[in-house]
Design a protein around this nucleic acid. Structure first.
Lengths: 185, 185
DNA sequence: GACATACGTTCATTTTACCGAACAAATCGA
DNA sequence: TCGATTTGTTCGGTAAAATGAACGTATGTC
């Protein structure tokens, strides 16, 4: 067991402990289900060791999560806006707006709102992430009470499991919606 | 070095070798960049060992790939186009364009191409599905040899693990790209 | 209270992943 | 043609990951 705890191993350890406690599972029980020694899991969760992928996979299977979910900190459903970048039209431009890790079903919707219209979104399954890309126009969108003004090219991401709505004023809007819903085992 | 090569380790090994060869990098060079012994990489690519996350991370960094990209597996998808619906502007309009089931990691990119420009997309991890939503303009996109003409509001979906490209002619284009990568686990 | 069980951690021991060196084969340049 | 370099693999040694047992602690039962 090394003492040079890599930050990655520590993050993974926190992740595992978090998931385990979310399920109300004891460390002993998880180690039993994963076919690992209690000591292994202990050192793993405390970030004191540098686990093998086989070990990680066993834990992932026992926790019923995709392996990659253990490798990144869980994306919290905070509201986040990525503003359209200025039109630097000198050449092709590519930009990563957002990354959602593992274990999701993906739905892509097209949303078209005439001027002075809108509707309330149905709250989706718990854990669902909703991301809006504004193709054209202007609208105000987001969870009730946290509405954000958006223009063409903007991206808005928020937890889709609460009440939310979309509303246009003087201008129509054309929006692409990507829903990422966690899979229920 | 164990002989009980786990299928996961073997898959990861294939993945690493694939990425390395795509970059025209020798195993010796990759091991140097990753700060690993040649022997380590050799056993890793051949699926004969059970790598540590630290080792995998070093390889991922040296290959300039997210760590999770080394954990994906192959799954083909066909090229599919959903044309923009006619602008029936009588009221708010919502339309499901596409659903991708299963555990996926999602990336959302913004792509901006001036007129008469274009570039080749790097082949993504095997099994990756790429879907393009055209926010504005016109472009020709898709796998090499299966290029499709797209206009504003169109959606194109295809397997992103092959060579593909995007190209505009007289008109600029603004595109949202959603990448869905399947996961092992 | 006394006992039993389950929890999470720490301790030797075994297993093995990583390393460095040596190796044959292939490639390159003079 | 020859030497020099680079390639990918195989071989002991070492550090450390995983193991199983034992530990102190907490919780529950009679």
């Amino acid at each position: 067991m090394s003492l040079a705890c890599s930050s990655l191993a520590a993050a993974i350890g926190r992740q595992i402990r978090l998931r385990r406690e979310q399920r109300g599972m004891s460390a002993a029980e998880l180690s039993r289900r994963a076919g690992l020694a209690k000591a292994t899991l202990s050192g793993l969760e405390s970030g004191r060791s540098n686990p093998t992928i086989d070990t990680l996979e066993a834990v992932a299977v026992a926790l019923a999560v995709p392996l990659t979910d253990l490798l990144v900190q869980r994306d919290q459903g905070a509201v986040q806006v990525v503003r359209a970048t200025d039109g630097d039209e000198s050449g092709p431009h590519r930009e990563l707006l957002r990354r959602v890790s593992g274990g999701h079903q993906v739905e892509i919707w097209r949303l078209r709102l005439p001027a002075h219209s809108g509707f309330d979104g149905v709250p989706h399954a718990p854990g669902t992430l909703e991301q809006l890309m504004v193709a054209a126009g202007r609208l105000s969108a987001g969870p009730s009470g946290e509405q954000v003004e958006l223009g063409a090219g903007d991206l808005l991401a928020f937890a889709g499991d609460v009440a939310h709505s979309y509303r246009t004023t003087s201008e129509a809007a054309d929006v692409t919606v990507v829903l990422a819903s966690p899979l229920i085992g």
